[in-house]
Design a protein around this nucleic acid. Sequence first.
DNA 1: CAAATTAATGGAAACGTTCCCGCAACCGTT
DNA 2: AACGGTTGCGGGAACGTTTCCATTAATTTG
Lengths: 340, 340
Amino acid sequence: MKHITIKDIAKVLGISKSTVSRALSSDSQNVSKETIRKVLDTADKMGYRKNEMAVNLRHRSTKTIGIILPEAETSFYMKFTSMVQHLLQLKGYRLLLAISDEDFINERSNVELFDKYRVDGLLISTCHNKANYDFYESFIKRGIPIVFFDRIIQGLECSSVKSDDYKATFFLMEHLIYDGRKRILYLAGPDHISTTADRMRAYHDTLSKHHISYDPSLVIVTGTNEEDGAAAMTAFLDSCPPQEMCDALFCFTDLQAVGAKKVLEKRGISIPETISIACMSGTRMAALVSPAITTVERPMLKMSEEAVRLLLAKIEDINTPSEKVVLPAEMFIRASTRRK
Amino acid sequence: MKHITIKDIAKVLGISKSTVSRALSSDSQNVSKETIRKVLDTADKMGYRKNEMAVNLRHRSTKTIGIILPEAETSFYMKFTSMVQHLLQLKGYRLLLAISDEDFINERSNVELFDKYRVDGLLISTCHNKANYDFYESFIKRGIPIVFFDRIIQGLECSSVKSDDYKATFFLMEHLIYDGRKRILYLAGPDHISTTADRMRAYHDTLSKHHISYDPSLVIVTGTNEEDGAAAMTAFLDSCPPQEMCDALFCFTDLQAVGAKKVLEKRGISIPETISIACMSGTRMAALVSPAITTVERPMLKMSEEAVRLLLAKIEDINTPSEKVVLPAEMFIRASTRRK
DNA sequence: CAAATTAATGGAAACGTTCCCGCAACCGTT
DNA sequence: AACGGTTGCGGGAACGTTTCCATTAATTTG
C-alpha cells in the first residue's frame, strides 16, 4: 500500500515540498491563497493523509496518552476510559489503551511499551500498591508525566485522583450502625489494592467510634468477583455458630455483594430484614439487582476531568506541582438496607 | 525531557551508530559479542529506550492496530477488547482504542485518525449499518486491512466475524414456543444496528414455522438500555387490553430485559409463571439478577481469536481472500423461562 | 602463501515531516 | 531613486532509526 506524501503532491504541482507543507499546515503562513487552494485540491484528489509518525518524530511529541487499566471486568474503568477519551480528543490527543489483568508484570511492560512509544503522558490505575514503587519512582524521575487514578500508589511524587474511600466507608458503616446493626461482616478486598487499607481503617474506626468491639472473625479477605463473594459468604455461614451470626454485610465491591446476596437468598435469609447489605465500588450492577444494593460510587465524570486536567498540566510543564486530589464519593441508599 | 538516542551511546563508546543499532537489534548479526555486551550495558546505564516513532517511520509499519467500539456501556466490548489486546500483544502489536458512542460521525473521524496514524489494521464494530457504506468501501479500496466484528456492514468486500443471530433468535423463540408461549412480545433493537434485521427475520420465521400468526402490536422497536426496556414494557402494559396480554417477553439485550423485568415485578406479574423472559446479547448481567434470565451470549473468546486471525492475515497479505465468519452463539437456559 | 571468504565496522541515504534560512519580487515610504 | 519591509517560495537540515554498501581486518582454503 503506497501512501501519498507531500513530495508526491509537490511533484504533481511542480512546487517544492516546503510550500506544500506550509499550505497543509493549519495556520498556512506565507503561502498564497491560490497555492493553498491548489494544494488542498490535489491532496484531496490524490487521497493524501498526513503521516503522523513523521510529524511526531519531527515534533518530538506524539499527542498520545497511554492509559493503563488493572482490569476490564467491571464497567467502571471502561466508562472512565470513554470519558477520558472524549476529553482528550477535544485537546487533540489520542488514547493508547492497555489492560494489566491485575498482574503487575503486565502493568510494568505496558508502561515500558508506552514509554518506547513516546506517549506524552500516562494515566494509570495500578494493580499493586507497593510492588512497583521503585519502578515508578525512577520512571517519574526521568520526567515522564504520570497521573494515577482510582488505585494510586502511596508516597510517589506525582499527581493522583481518587475517591474518598475512608469517608465513604465510614458513611456506609454508620448507615448500617444507625439502623441497629452491630455484627457487620466485612468482605475485604485483596491486600495489593491501594484502597484496601483506607477502607479497613475506616471499618475499624467506625466500630470504635460507636463502641462496637472488633471481631476478627467478621473480616474475610477475599477477591473482588461475584464468585469470591459467594464463596466467602458460604464459608462464613457454614462455619459460624448461630449466636455469632452477622446482621449486616459490608462488601468491597458490588460484584462480591451480588454473589453473597445469591447465597443468602438461596438459604432463605431475608434482605434487608435479617441481614442488610451495603457495598463499596458500586456500578450500575448494584442498582439492577433486586433488592437493589446500597452502595457508594466513584465520581466517574469528575474523576476523569481531574485526571485529564492534572495530566495536561504536567505535560504542559513537567514542573507543575503535583496534586493529590481526593473526590467525595456518591452515596446511593437502596432497598438492601431499607427495612420495609 | 531529553531522550537518549543511539547516537549518544555511539559517542560514549566511540563507535558508530550503525554498530549500536545492530547490537541493539534482536538478531544482532555481524557484531562481536564484546560490542553487544558493551552497547547493551551502556544503553541500560544511560536509560535508553528505542524511539518507536523513528522505527515506524523507517519501517513504514507501526505494529499498531486500531479498534473502534460503538459504546462502552456493556461489558462485552470491553472484555472483547481485553482479549484482543492479549492476542495482539503476543504477536508484537499494540492496540489503539476509540469509542464512537453510537455516533457515526465519531466513528468516521476515529477511522480517519487511525489512518493518519498509519495503523497496520483496523478492528471495527460499527454503530450504523448503511450510513457509512460508501466511506468504508473507498477506504478498503485504498488497501487498508479492516475486519468488522459483532456489528458488521453488509456487502462490503472485507472480512468479518459475528455470531449467528438468526439461529440464536430462532433457538430462543422455539424454546419459548415449546414451553407453550404463543404471544411473544419482542422488544426489538434500533434499525441502525446490523443485527436487528437478522433477529427480526428469525422472529417472523419461528412464528410462521409454528403457525402462530404475527401480531404487529407485539413488536416494539426501542433502545438497548435498561430504561428503554422499562419504558417499552410500561407502555405495552398500559395500552394492552387484557385479552391481548403477552405470555413471554423476548428482548434485544439483557439490559432491556432487566428493565422490563423490574416493571413486571413491580406490577406483581410473576416470572416465569405468567410471563417468561428470554433475551439476546446476554452478558453476565443476565446471570446476576434473579430470577436469572435465559439468554444467548456472543462467543467472545472465539470471536476475538477469529477477528485477530483474519486481521493479521490481511496485514500479512492484503490480497488474502476475505472471510465472513459466523460463529454459533452460546445458549444459557435460566430461571426466567423455567417453570418451577 | 596468496587468494578468497568471512566478520566487524563506518559512512551515508532513506523514511515523511517541519522549519530555518536565503532569495527574489513587490510594495510603500522618504 | 534608494531603501526597508513584506510576501511567496525553494533548499536543506533535522528528528532517530535501519540498512545498503564499502572498507578493513581476520580467518579459511587450495
